[in-house]
Design a protein around this nucleic acid. Structure first.
Lengths: 349, 349
DNA sequence: GTCATTTGGGTAATCGATTGCACAAAAAGT
DNA sequence: ACTTTTTGTGCAATCGATTACCCAAATGAC
């Protein structure tokens, strides 16, 4: 039950004042070299480590940043967390994690707790059901940087890093059309948050650009989990408009569709091609592997931490202009959308 | 840039002492009902929220616990984090995350930082290369609960929650033998940490119990990533001892083997059966889906947080006896190990 | 009516690090 | 020799919440 040494212990040992010890440790110019040497020596001898909470209380800076994600057990968010940590560890920041479980009230509570813990900033991805952003605006008004990623809102005066969901969807659907598909179904989330709206828009514009009529019955709403994907595909199979491709806004949805198609002995991609979204690890392991839109999760996490650092270093007098970073998603084309005739497997940037 | 209200603001407003406000908010018996009412009212009006760092500094209790994992971007660890958070959020704990990237020196640094942040406890999984446990023992000597999960060491006088790796491996291999396999290869990690040693032991004992000789050439060491699994399988294919089953200590390794087998038109499971370990989400999506040993990650996370809570509530006078919880892993039998003759798909507990 | 309790709440110290201000001694300038 | 600067360090306040200790007023006991 040994206690940690404090600057007072060092001060007592050397018959100095605690303030002198503090300054010596922080390499204050007014402290003599000999004193610094002595202090550093005893600090090492005592295995002194500064009390981060005490310093935080005094400085109003905790060197902790809060990360709010819907859930930690999805590869996408795990990668983001990893990216954020990589970007911030060298700057000496620690990460406090909160999960919202897609519940806006948990999200608001998380912001509150993080503020009370005096985090120096918050990096967050909105819950699917978040429609009110007051908690983030309130956090912003405390003067700490807030950075949203992936799930964001354009109306917000808050920095974010997202991917161009429209572009990802557009290119995926365009690719399906290049492969000869004409009746392309789309799985979308019934929660009309930005990312899903944009992907739907990309889907529609790609159709339009290629002169293919938009058929509302081919758009199926659900929660986009595996089972939802299966049900959606079954619905399509029972309907009169059998699609020749499915573009799903989630990889799990795409996987559900693939399973149902295989169970019904429908050949993928020849009879029905499939394209997912997110490039989750499992997409590469199915047979055929599923084409998907890559979101560059780790880069997104890195970028979010970069923006945070930029904002924390920003001169308080400059007018705040939110940084809106948009990554172009990558198209990872795999067997589920690449018809035999087409020769090469290509991975676009 | 609005500042947070403090108890002093409330005190000034009501012409009370800060101490009285503090006591009122904490429902101290010596404060009159009227005063409490007044304080609570203005606290609400001021939107007062206690400053967690200040309270932590004074109390020596931060209501933060540290979680140390090798990496956040693996489903297994993400699920554990989720399980831990679920178990602790209702008790008002926040989670500070550190990643070791499988580097023991990062791990030691993480413990140090967490201690300096005065976390109330640490829940951790060892890095693959950790051989020295001093940092954890030091943390323990500070009197805070330490709980290890999954990757642990029996010699340590520290609580842990692990699965019975021996049993999982034993049953997996026994199952393969029941399916008629006789030359069962085993992929293991060259890092000889407990979990891999135990799985190897389970493999050997299952062979022995069934009177099958142990053949050293069938045990292949690697880092168990996808590419390692592929290489290991290729090595086996080139050798003279073609196995009729592969029991891999990692799912990625199993997946690599499956890929190579399929590429060589070797039928799975009929010619070679496959069994993985961890039941990562992707195992259920391949064709055939891969049988695997389930580690009950979320339950493991829950259990770890339970143990932490037990220990933090423990009377300091009682002698400390580490809690060693061992879960029995589940066998998830899928197509990769279930030969056609055998009728039903069974999921054992 | 006097002494003992109880009730209600204020004072000041504490947790550990940081920093503005003060001040003596030493060094430099005139 | 006498200011002015510079150097090196100490004192005390601060961050915000908590709590041991103290004291006055109210209540009760006899």
């Amino acid at each position: 039950m040994d206690k940690k040494a404090t600057i007072h212990d060092i001060a007592r040992e050397l018959d100095l004042a605690a303030s002198t010890v503090s300054r010596a440790l922080n390499n204050h110019p007014r402290i003599s070299k000999e004193t610094k040497r002595a202090v550093n020596l005893t600090a090492k001898a005592f295995n002194y480590q500064p009390h981060r909470l005490a310093a935080a209380l005094r400085n109003g800076k905790s060197n902790v940043i809060g990360v709010i994600i819907p859930t930690a057990d999805r590869s996408f968010f795990g990668s983001i967390v990893r990216g954020i940590e990589e970007g911030l560890r060298k700057e000496g920041y620690q990460i406090m994690i909160c999960q919202t479980y897609e519940d806006p009230s948990f999200e608001a509570a998380a912001v509150e707790v993080l503020l009370n813990s005096r985090v120096d900033g918050i990096i967050a991805s909105l819950s699917k059901r978040t429609t009110n952003f007051d908690h983030f605006l309130k956090a912003k008004s405390k003067g700490i940087p807030i950075v949203l990623f992936d799930r964001s809102s354009d109306e917000l005066d808050i920095s974010h890093v997202i991917i161009d969901d429209f572009m990802g969807a557009f290119r995926a659907v365009d690719h399906l059309i290049q492969q000869g598909c004409r009746r392309i179904a789309h799985f979308t989330n019934f929660q009309k948050i930005n990312i899903y709206k944009e992907r739907l828009r990309g889907y529609r514009e790609a159709l339009e650009k290629n002169g293919i009529p938009f058929v509302p019955q081919l758009v199926i709403e659900s929660d986009m989990q595996l089972e939802d994907g299966r049900l959606s595909m079954q619905t399509l199979l029972k309907g009169e408009l059998m699609p020749d491709a499915v573009f799903s806004s989630s990889d799990l949805g795409a996987m559900g569709a693939l399973q149902v198609l295989k169970e019904n002995n429908i050949r993928v991609p020849d009879e029905v091609a499939i394209f997912g979204f997110s490039n989750e690890p499992f997409t590469s392991f199915s047979d055929p592997p599923i084409s998907s839109v890559d979101q560059h999760c780790k880069r997104m996490g890195n970028a979010a931490s970069e923006i945070f650092l930029e904002e924390i270093r920003r001169n308080a007098t400059e007018k705040f202009i939110p940084r809106k970073v948009v990554f172009t998603p990558g198209l990872v084309i795999r067997g589920s959308s690449l018809k035999k005739e087409t020769p090469i497997l290509k991975t676009m940037p």
